[in-house]
Structures are given as C-alpha cells and as structure tokens.
Design a protein around this nucleic acid. Sequence first.
DNA 1: AAAACTGGTGCAATCGGTTGCAAGGGGTTT
DNA 2: AAACCCCTTGCAACCGATTGCACCAGTTTT
Lengths: 332, 332
Amino acid sequence: MGVTLKEVAALAGVSRSAVSRTFTPGASVSAKTRAKVEKAAKELGYSPNALASSLTTGRTKLIGLISNNFHNPIFLEVFDQFTRALQERGLRPLIVNLTDETEPANSVRMLRQYSVDAVIVASSTLPPSFAKAFHDAGVPVVHTFGRSATSPEVHVVGIDNVECGRMAARELVARGYASVGYLGGPQDATSSLDRQRGFTEEMANHPQIPVSHSFAGAYSFEAGRAEMLRLLAGDPAQAYFCGDDILSIGALSALADHGLKPGSDIGIIGLNDMEMSRWEYINLTTIHQPIKQIITASVDLVEEMLKTPDRYPEARIFPCRVIERGTLRPRP
Amino acid sequence: MGVTLKEVAALAGVSRSAVSRTFTPGASVSAKTRAKVEKAAKELGYSPNALASSLTTGRTKLIGLISNNFHNPIFLEVFDQFTRALQERGLRPLIVNLTDETEPANSVRMLRQYSVDAVIVASSTLPPSFAKAFHDAGVPVVHTFGRSATSPEVHVVGIDNVECGRMAARELVARGYASVGYLGGPQDATSSLDRQRGFTEEMANHPQIPVSHSFAGAYSFEAGRAEMLRLLAGDPAQAYFCGDDILSIGALSALADHGLKPGSDIGIIGLNDMEMSRWEYINLTTIHQPIKQIITASVDLVEEMLKTPDRYPEARIFPCRVIERGTLRPRP
DNA sequence: AAAACTGGTGCAATCGGTTGCAAGGGGTTT
DNA sequence: AAACCCCTTGCAACCGATTGCACCAGTTTT
C-alpha cells in the first residue's frame, strides 16, 4: 500500500541507507544525493514509516494520554491544550479513556504494547500509585493534576489542593458567613480529600463557625446538583466551597429549584475557573487553576524525560487565585 | 527495555515461532508448548510489541480521530463515546487536533506515517473533500457528522441537516411566530449551510413570514452570544433557529443581557440536545441528534472497512426529533 | 506392516527502516 | 607525486515480530 524506502532508493539510484539518511536530521548526505532522493520521494509520494523506524530507534513519539473524566467540561479545555501542545512538538497523543476503571495494569500493558515514549496521567482523582505503576514498568510518566507531595515518586504537575482549601475557607470567613460547608467530589479522589483537608484546617482557626462536609459521587453536574438538593432538604450552611466548578454549577441549579439566589441567599465558591464559569448566567466566583501553565509544564517535563530518561522526579506546583464574580456576597 | 519474543523463547526452550503462535489467536500450538510459553512469558512479564507485529501483519489497530472543534461541549460527549467504542473493540484512538487548519495534507501524511488502519473525521464543518483526501491516499475513512449526500464518495455517518432545517422551520411556524431567523455557525461549514437551506426551503411555503439569516464565526458560546447581541441591537425576529446548542446557549446569554425571557419574549430552538441543554437554567428546546447511534455506526463502519478495505461507500443517516423544553412558546 | 494423514514445530525470509563499519573518492598538505 | 583527511556511500546486521514451507513424529487407514 505505502511507498517504501526501497522503491525510493531504486528510483533515485542510490542505496537504502542514503534514503534513510536523507530523512534523518543530522545524518551525513551530500547535497547531490539529497536532491536525487528528495526528487524521487516526491515523485512517489514517499514518507517514512514512523513505526518501522521506531523499531531500531526505540522512539515512537507516541505519548499515552490517560483520563477518567469525560463528564467535566473542563476536560475539553484540557484535551484541547494537551493535544495541541503535544503535536506542536511532534508528539502524538494516544488516548486512553479510563471511565470506571481504576487498576493501572491494563493501561500499562496496553501502552507498553504500543511502545509509547511516555505517559501523561491527567486526573485529579487517581491515586499516586496509579502513575507509579507506569514508572515501575519503566515507562516515563507525569501525573498532571496529581496530588502534590513533598517527596513525589513520579513527576507531578498541578496545584496545591490543600492550600486551595485554605484559600476557599479564608474567603468565606472574610465575607462573614456564619456557617460553611464543603461539597467535594468523589470521596476517594485525592483532590477532593486534599481540598477538604485545607478547608478544615483553616476553619479550625474559627471555631465559632460550624463546618459541614459532604461528597458528590463524581465531578459532574448531576452529582453536584443531587448533593446540593440533598443538603437543601436539610439545614444548609450559609455558604459552600464546591470542590470543582462543575459541581458548583450543579449546585447552582439546585439552588434555582429552591428559588434561592446565589450570592445573596447562599454563597458558592468553586475551583477551576473553566470557561463556562464566566458565562453570564453562571457567573461563578471561583478559584482559578492555571490550566495552560500546568499543561505546558507537563509537556515540557515529557520532553525532558525523553532526553533524560532517569530524570529525578519533581513536583511543579502552580499558585491559584480567587476570581471574584457573583456567587459570594461582597466582603464587608 | 521491554522483554522480547526471543527471550521468552529461550526461557521456554522453544523456537520464536512457537512463542509468536501462542499469542496469535487461531494459530496451531499444542497445549504443552502453550503452557511452557505462557509460563515463561508470565515470568518475564512479556507482552508482544504491537508495532513490530504491525510490520508484517499490516495492521496497527490505530485509528486516527480528527476533530476541529474543541470549544463545543458536545465534543466531550463525542470523545467519550468514540474512545470507549474504539477501545471496546481493541482499537486505539490517535487524536489529531485540527484547530485552525483546514488542509488535509498534513494530517494525511502524519497518519500515514503512523500507519493508522483507518481514520475517523469527526466534524460537521469540514468539507467532504477533506475526508476524500484520505480515501485518495488509500486510507479507509469515515466522515462522522459529515455532509449527507445522495452519492457519498466516502462513508458518511450523521444526520440530514437539510431536513433538520425544515424541521426547525415547521416548528417555529406551528407556534405562530410572525418573523423568524436563522443563526448559523461558520458560514463555510457544511452543516451550517445545509441547515440554512432546509430552513429557507420550508419557510418559502410561508411567504408572509419574514426570514432573516446570520452566521456566527464558530460553533461556540462566545460566537453565538456576540451574534445575538448584534441582532438584538437591530430589529430582531420573534424566534431563532440556532444551528447548534452551544450557539443557542450563547444566544440565551445575550437575551438575558437585554432582560428578555426566552420562550415568552423571544423563541430559540437549537440542534444537538447535548447534556447541558437539559440543565434547568438552560432548558433549551432543541432538535435531538442521536450521538450515540451515530458514533456506534461510525465505529461499526470502521470495523467493517478493516475486513473489507474496498467496501462500497455508503451514508448512514439517522433521524432527529424535536425535544420540547422551555425556549419556545407553546403550540397554540 | 507399509502407506497416507495429521497436527505441531523450527528454519529462514520478510516487514520498513537504522546504523556501525569499511571502503571509495575528492581535495590538501608536504 | 605520495601521504593524509574527511566526507559520502553501500554493505550487512539488526530492531521484534509473523508466516510459508518443509520436516517430523504419532495416528489412522488399507
């Protein structure tokens, strides 16, 4: 089906090596040979088979991109940025959709079969051990949105979720809410737990303010809405820190059901600052997570690992900041 | 780095062929040999190199998945379904993000370099010629959400956009709107043009109702919002058919700016019925596009092309239906 | 008991490239 | 003109697998 090296070599009247070298940057070929080869190649419509060459070079330029959240709109932004950043550097994303699977074994095997050069685990819910499994199998890995650790076992890029929890708590306190709640994502998600921890820690400085905690089953609109409806059926707090914008938006929808106006009747602060949060009828006050920087840094790390495979693991943590919009009452 | 066939063969005390056959379904191996090989393979943690085998088999099980819309939330659903459907059948999606590129040449070359078994072009904006370029290069292709044609040049799966335009027009007429407008996506998008054509055709049966036309620059929230703001600054129609849910949602946001209530003050009907359109504060009346069926059919076609490469091209068109929610006034 | 099958196995060629090595060729230096 | 370099080039081995073919042993048929 495809044109091969051999045919080009025959047409150009040179050896196969010469053709190969013409397409290998930095290899030694004379201008004359190169010209002959390029002419023949163009004539035949030849382009080298990346997979065949990977056999000898050991590089496929394939990067496994693993995610388990296809229900959070933020991930459309994430995929957009990742796929672009990778292809700008000549790398190819091989997607793994991990929905309802949490064991790394299958993904590791599959991605090794395809000889990916590296793997990006893009998930704030999978435990560090998931990414570690790739490392242990000899596959370079970076865990984007992973749990920030003081001594990471693999490369981690993301934010300090504990600090974000504190930040949210400080914000709610500063606005004088007399009771507050945390509405997290899945109870076993690292991001969910860390944000809760920071929130709790900070609130411990204000013992007069009661704090409640609850978890939605997923980072999704439906889960956020359902959980907030449950809370409203009881005795809700005056303001909530929702562990993700999409949860917040679900929660806002629940408030609307009860005729409550966010901002004045009840406070909501989210986390992520996805595009949708800016939409006028959402207008969510939230903590901005610098997605673009995080993804650029992740792909940078991937590239560096390709050069230096046994690179010492590091964590790249980016600061977040509160974006004031309309779902918290103003500071007094 | 990886364990190879040869090492397993050595450990098991058999030839390389025997090992290969053990991992090839349907090959002839005795139970005894198979047992020895499997034991050795497990011991060494061997799994076959898919890329190396592709050299001789001519199959990589890699499927190129091309999209150019990472700003429309519907595509999160699309990616979710595609990636799952593909991996359920042992196929691997290789993503190409085509944002601001419209020439097929680069994608064709790149995907051929990676020897993809087939390509899925998932876009309602790219012209048929884009998909055709893959076909011409000898790469099996299916154009999902492509322009439905009576004589398709490549496999096309999707809806009849012209009919959807008519359907929207009939719906607006039935509800007694005295003036209507079409708010399309990019002016060169096939889906945008076809929906407009159907809309216009049907409205021609009702010459007493004035019809206006305009186009947003993209299928995105911002574009829909901006275009509706422009329309509202002039003399808007009583109801609009927006060529996509995300445009509709942008338009709704513009209405809110002007204090107009959708449904009562002005009518909006969208197309797609994405998850978000169900959200309470959006509650968009829209035309349902059967995404799941479309994607399943697309992947079915891919599989069938793998069996029969020179399959005769066909179009698989699925019916749509109006989903009544809150953004059109009730039928009289 | 010889002949004819049968299923299982290994050899070796092959897929489409890359690359170490040795040899060839042109130009410099002495 | 001989000696020396360095840049090009082709040969051949190799990357990790698959597969047609021939051979072999063990059964079944006559």
